[in-house]
Design a protein around this nucleic acid. Sequence first.
DNA 1: TTTTTTAATGAACAATGTTCTAAAAAAAAA
DNA 2: TTTTTTTTTAGAACATTGTTCATTAAAAAA
Lengths: 205, 205
Amino acid sequence: MGVSERRIRERLDARQSILATARELFLLKGFEATTIRNIAEKIEYSPSTIYQHFKDKNEIFYTIHSESFAELVRYLNASEMHKNPMDQLIALGQIYIQFALENPELYDLMFIMEAPIDFLDYLEDANWTEGKMAFDYLKSVIANCIQQGLIKETDLESLSYLIWSTVHGLVTISIRKRGLKIGLSDPDTIIQRSFAIFSHLLVKS
Amino acid sequence: MGVSERRIRERLDARQSILATARELFLLKGFEATTIRNIAEKIEYSPSTIYQHFKDKNEIFYTIHSESFAELVRYLNASEMHKNPMDQLIALGQIYIQFALENPELYDLMFIMEAPIDFLDYLEDANWTEGKMAFDYLKSVIANCIQQGLIKETDLESLSYLIWSTVHGLVTISIRKRGLKIGLSDPDTIIQRSFAIFSHLLVKS
DNA sequence: TTTTTTAATGAACAATGTTCTAAAAAAAAA
DNA sequence: TTTTTTTTTAGAACATTGTTCATTAAAAAA
């Protein structure tokens, strides 16, 4: 029965080309300017066909958001070259920042925009698996630091949330264009310097 | 010539009622659901009349954004009761967080949403005065801390950006609904705890 | 070849921000 | 008071958006 397998493959191909096009347009023009009709035109389908593959626009961008987490994880994996958990933690922060600055639109989609979370809400799914896993990974590295006495013992969850928040804050001020507008000469440089200061605060405690 | 003065007053009244209604609907339903027609209906004007007072929707929300800064400043002023600049700095952070948690929609508009910045871009105005002034105020308090030897001397701009980023990150993860979705029991509590940890890191350095 | 299932389309809907022309109202001039 | 001018308001219209639904075309099964 190779027929139905081919059908499945064709459906998947269509789905993939929708996603690829949506991603391309999104990176080029942003969320609002990436319209269903725009995507449809590019893959030479009618707009309504897209709704056979995705419930709505939010699901498309939820999917791109999920895929982007795979990309982030690929970045973060590089931190495992460090044996010392403190070195790894700092590398983690640096790589996280690097990912955000190199892929600002994707970072926006993953951590700022409402579309992916709205889709989760529609699913009545309280679990943001992608975020949870990333946060758990961060927690585990920090736990190692505490265990080895490299960081003063404190509530793991709060400290992890603090560290995540700090790097998140550093990059989102820039991504949502508040950085340039307060007269910072070069946002990227300031982000690096600020993170360096934060790193020193952490190890010294 | 009391006539033209009355006209001016009437124009201002109309403007104010547009803003008040926009603000009310925005706090109730959010940015997208606050439509020009919606505002017009509520103040019993035609949609097109609104465009005599504001260039576009972005200008309306830029104005609300600006007004909200006055509110934030009112919050922050309470920090001046502290003589010790370090105490003031920490109070500043706590109050900033308090403002964000008590007015999440306004905070969103001021520091996350694109509408106000887009309007600045239209004006070709690189100066985000509201943000700049708030940041300068933060810098001055931090400068006092450094001067009095309460914080280790580092690049003022980077340290200020770090501190701002940290509180910004703490609250925006929650505001853009990433907090609950990773299984944090109570986001507000965690934010407080995380900030407490951060405060300790700062003073100890 | 005929029937059934699947996929794709095109038209349509309601809603949006925004613009433009014509009407109404108010003020100024006569 | 009447006429002219200016200002304000409204209504219709436009292009676009996400989304739905009945109909057509295509493919697979019988």
